[in-house]
Design a protein around this nucleic acid. Structure first.
Lengths: 142, 142
DNA sequence: CTAGATGCAAACAGTTTGCGTCACT
DNA sequence: AGTGACGCAAACTGTTTGCATCTAG
């Protein structure tokens, strides 16, 4: 059975220097459950290294995301976007060029959630984002 | 068969004044296919009313979204959030308090996309966001 | 020793707010 | 006539950048 890779391993695989700040920021993220914001991560890091800068946190989170050590929630393509299509539908999102195509609800098999998990949650809308690379971005990347 | 409600109707139903700016902004959104940003909507509105202000566009888009005349894409809960859960999973998002709960992949029946629609698109990840109100927000709202 | 990482401050982008004036109802 | 909408400018938040200094490899 494979061992969990250490932080050092993760950095070495990617040719990143193993700095104290880097490690503290990474551990801050991992110790925060749920979906921490950059600010929350910064605060947690601050408690370990009072001199750490917010810019360093941003730079490192960016590096972690780019190198696949962490993942982001949702689309967040820079600025908020508006829906013009009011019919239920989903999205095909190219992570390369940020283009979004609408995907009709019918093109996805119906979603079913196990009721017991929902508790008192009242569903208003289900939004499916299919993330990937469009044909030309995939071509450009290889 | 019911008629498509006009812009005037939509405003009256919500007690909103029908102003020229409002109408132009609404038409700008509707005429823009895809997923226009606020900036794109502003530019289109500018071409109809050269004196319209960006603040007015923001204020009205906000009103349209709040009143359900338009919808937003994705989560965009203000600031970008980070995933700590690297296993495939989805989200239960409360639109009231913005809390996000993780939803294990197993709690959703497998998603299947019709292949023909995908063209050369290479799927990297599928993200499902179930939007709604959690128990306490639902209680608070009624 | 050197490439790359850090910390600071300043710059930026997107968005919101306050307020005096104007217009729909 | 009065409430709410507009336009402007200033404020704010979240994020990025430039640069001098420092440090891991």
């Amino acid at each position: 059975m494979p061992n969990q890779p250490t932080f050092r391993d993760l950095c070495h695989e990617r040719g990143l220097a193993v700095t104290h700040q880097r490690q503290v920021i990474y551990e801050a993220v991992m110790s925060l459950q749920d979906h921490p914001s950059h600010e929350m991560i910064y605060e947690r890091a601050l408690s370990k290294i009072p001199s750490v800068s917010l810019a360093t946190v941003y730079k490192n989170l960016h590096i972690f995301l780019e190198s696949g050590m962490l993942q982001e929630v949702g689309l967040h393509q820079g600025s908020i976007r508006i829906e013009t299509n009011l019919k239920p539908h989903h999205h095909l999102v190219c992570t390369g060029c940020k283009t979004i195509w609408d995907l009709d609800e019918k093109e996805l098999r119906p979603l079913q959630l196990s009721k017991k998990r929902l508790g008192g949650f009242k569903i208003k809308r289900i939004s499916v984002d299919v993330l990937g690379l469009c044909e030309s971005c995939a071509a450009a990347q290889s």
